[in-house]
Design a protein around this nucleic acid. Structure first.
Length: 415
RNA sequence: GCGGGUGUAGCUCAGCUGGUUAGAGCGCCGGUUUGUGGUACCGGAGGUCGGGGGUUCAAGUCCCCUUACUCGCCCCA
């Protein structure tokens, strides 16, 4: 027999105990907040056509080029586990969008085949909101505002995170700026790192994000995107900033903030924690006016963000919430005593947390109840079973009574 | 894809420069207490020391390979 342990798949993990409480806490806060802003919940499938992401996220991005879980279906279609949610929501919106502002909230598991480490998993969970159909500085501001409130709401202190902001400009601006950047960087070809050199052709703006020391040095005098934006994008960005200023949301402008997904235009933002130097991006997003046109015949603007639930969990402390309901343990010394007993129906009808324990050792029963913080024990031991009696003990007051099983009124006695 | 660290009981870990029968705490089972919670004390079960190879009279300990986990790089939430 093969009785070796089967490990969870690399980079995946079971969420349980205190962790699942944190997880649910964050997701519940997320929905209660976004419901207030009239976001409508949508659940999209976990599997999608691979095309969806190559066309939206971009085939040269790491996410698509090396981190996708893709497989061929029994038909001939190439299916993948979604690496992010925005593309799926965009697909949904492309078919369902009517007019005005379509506000969507969602959450669920995402999959990226990366090397796992602290705060980074192959299956991880995101909460997302998207606002599709309306382009306005207010809409961008509102997304950031909700993000900021959520962090506050789940108890992440203001001093533990910061908001980084940038504008990438319109698609035309990005093309224009890329050329300027290529011109500048070309004179340093021999000094650029290998990855930056390959990006020079495919996606020059990503070079701004380089962690290479020499690249960073070269970039200090590089032309800045904010000085190469169209008038329209500049005004737009200024108005987003004005709304943030007037509503007390602090931010830092970082001209080098570029998102790792190709579809972003204009406003880009990222909430970073200073708790953890490594995986410090806890929530990130931006505007994506051309995304829907990449995957459908329609051309609809949008803006959105995603936050990593596991990363938020590491910043959240929840107080040990007191059980509001009473806990009742029905203990029998022999499972045969349950066969004809009326007591099961009565206990199932109680508005209490209840558990049935079968153990011949009375001491064990009480010890178990004590360790697990039960309020009451209902006991049918060998003696009680003989004449259909049942013992009820209040473990807090230590008061103990004996009843006939058929006569005991549980909802009257347990409160 | 590339580096570093770690794999010993169900869990958390000791185990010195190789040297008798591999240890502790927690948990579990039983007893002191015939059916009443905590504490204490006593006893018990439970290990191919991640796997394979090598060096040696002798390997949990040293060397090589492999695998899993973990931390970091890249990248990202």
């Amino acid at each position: 027999m093969n009785n070796k342990n089967i490990q969870p798949v690399k980079g995946t993990h079971d969420i349980h105990g205190e962790e699942i409480k944190k997880f649910n806490f964050i997701v519940e806060k997320f929905y209660s907040l976004t419901n207030k802003f009239n976001f409508q919940q949508v659940q999209t499938p976990i599997i999608e056509h691979q095309d969806l992401f190559t066309r939206s996220v971009g085939e040269h991005t790491d996410i698509v080029s090396k981190e996708m879980y893709a497989f061929t279906d029994k038909g001939d279609s190439t299916i993948c586990l979604r690496p992010e949610a925005t593309s799926s929501i965009a697909r949904f919106a492309a078919s369902e969008y009517l007019s005005g502002s379509m506000k969507i909230s969602t959450h669920g598991p995402m999959f990226r085949r990366e090397r796992p480490q602290k705060g980074r998993y192959r299956q991880f969970h995101q909460i997302n909101i998207e606002n599709i159909g309306e382009k306005s500085p207010y809409v961008d501001f509102e997304m950031i505002m909700v993000a900021n409130s959520l962090l506050k709401e789940i108890g992440v202190e203001k001093k533990h995170f910061r908001l980084i902001l940038n504008s990438l400009g319109s698609q035309a601006d990005q093309l224009n700026y890329s050329k300027i950047l290529i011109d500048y960087l070309s004179q340093y070809r021999s000094k650029l790192s290998e990855t930056s050199l390959s990006r020079l052709e495919k996606n020059p703006m990503r070079i701004l994000d380089s962690k290479d020391e020499q690249d960073k040095e070269i970039l200090t005098n590089a032309p800045v995107i904010s000085e190469n934006l169209s008038q329209e994008s500049t005004v737009y960005f200024n108005q987003v900033k004005e709304l943030l200023d007037n509503n007390g949301i602090d931010y830092t402008i970082d001209h080098k903030l570029v998102r790792g997904l190709d579809y972003y235009t204009d406003t880009a933002f990222e909430f970073q924690t200073n708790e953890d130097k490594r995986q410090n991006a806890i929530l990130a997003g931006g505007r994506y006016d051309k995304l829907i046109s990449l995957i459908s015949p329609r051309d609809i603007p949008g803006v959105g963000w995603a936050a990593g639930v596991e990363r938020l969990m590491s910043l959240v402390n929840i107080k040990n919430d007191k059980e509001e309901k009473l806990k009742v343990l029905l203990a029998v010394q022999n499972d045969q005593f349950l066969l004809k007993s009326e007591i099961l129906k009565k206990i199932y009808n109680l508005n209490c947390i209840h558990e049935i324990k079968i153990n011949k050792n009375i001491k064990k029963i009480f010890s178990y109840a004590d360790k697990n913080n039960f309020d009451f024990i209902l006991l049918i031991g060998d003696e009680e079973n003989l004449n259909n009696k049942i013992v009820l003990k209040n473990l807090k007051t230590k008061e103990q009574k004996i009843f006939n099983q058929s006569e005991i009124k549980l909802d009257h006695e347990i409160r």
